[in-house]
């Protein structure tokens, strides 16, 4: 058994009286796509926010690469090697796609604040940005981010995350709002990224999820209902009842 890259134990987050995430445990392994599915309000995005440090958990532990990171700041968690994308597109709107990725790559240069290095002279960053854009097959790298289509901005966001050279990727609904063709390409890309990253994928597109995920965790009301291989989840009566629904045909 290989050791997990990221392991969450009994993770909880409470908003007032609402237990958005309630005792969730899960593990991510290198080279594995772990999808988290569940109805709206199940706490999937909150879970990602806890893992990325955007929210501090009220209880529980998160181990990543030998560090306890529960409650650490987002910048520290990103520095350790967890990259995330957002449900709503979150890029530097006024920068070109290339500049977006170069800035992302800069985050991993551990050389103080960079006051004494002129940006255009740092070739490693240009190379890292170009490589990240290449990896997601992004072509219009000189375009200003806010003028890109929704699908392209999503692609760009993945490229930015890759430019920080993460070990684990947390992807929050990367297919949301995409057309069929774009969606197809993004699904293939995520499958490819899953080979050399530990990927946590939150997604509503069940077709895509069942196609590329190696492990599925089903969340309902902040709790893990069931976790296992896609075939086992598809066959589970509890999941059928709670989420997939009796008249909704499982893929």
């Amino acid at each position: 058994m290989t050791e997990s890259v990221l392991a969450a134990r009994d993770l909880a987050r409470q908003f007032g009286g609402l237990k958005a995430v309630d005792g969730v445990s899960l593990e991510l392994f290198a080279g594995e796509i772990h999808a988290v599915i569940g109805p709206n309000g199940a706490g999937k995005t909150t879970l990602i926010n806890l893992l990325s440090g955007d929210l501090a958990p009220t209880a529980g532990s998160i181990r990543f690469a030998g560090h306890e990171i529960a409650g650490a700041t987002p910048e520290r968690i990103a520095q350790l090697g967890i990259g995330r994308s957002y449900q709503r597109v979150n890029v530097f709107a006024g920068f070109s796609a290339f500049e977006n990725c170069r800035l992302a790559a800069q985050a991993r240069l551990a050389h103080g604040l960079g006051l004494f290095r002129q940006a255009r002279d740092v070739h490693v960053l240009n190379e890292a940005a170009a490589a990240a854009l290449e990896r997601v097959r992004f072509e219009r790298s000189e375009r200003i981010a806010e003028t890109l289509s929704h699908g392209e901005q999503r692609q760009l966001e993945i490229a930015m995350t890759l430019a920080t050279a993460p070990k684990a990727l947390l992807l929050d609904e990367p297919l949301a709002g995409m057309g069929a063709e774009e969606s197809e390409r993004m699904t293939a890309l995520i499958a490819e990224l899953g080979r050399d990253h530990a990927v946590l994928l939150v997604e509503h597109d069940m077709d895509a999820v069942f196609r590329i995920a190696h492990t599925l965790t089903v969340m309902v009301d902040g709790k893990v209902l069931e976790s296992g291989a896609p075939a086992a989840i598809r066959a589970s009566a509890a999941v059928q009842e709670a989420y997939l629904g009796s008249d909704e045909t499982a893929p």
């Binding site: 990325s52 955007d54 700041t73 987002p74 910048e75 990103a78 990259g83 995330r84 979150n90 890029v91 530097f92 709107a93 006024g94 920068f95 170069r102 800035l103 992302a104 800069q106 985050a107 240069l109 604040l113 960079g114 006051l115 004494f116 290095r117 002129q118 940006a119 740092v122 960053l125 930015m160 920080t164």
Partner: peptide, 20 residues
């Protein structure tokens, strides 16, 4: 400088900078 570029990133979207 690299520092200056990071400042521009902060002006544009600070929370994204932290996530990076």
């Amino acid at each position: 400088s690299l520092f200056g570029h990071a400042l521009l990133g902060i002006r544009s979207n600070e929370s994204r900078m932290r996530a990076l």
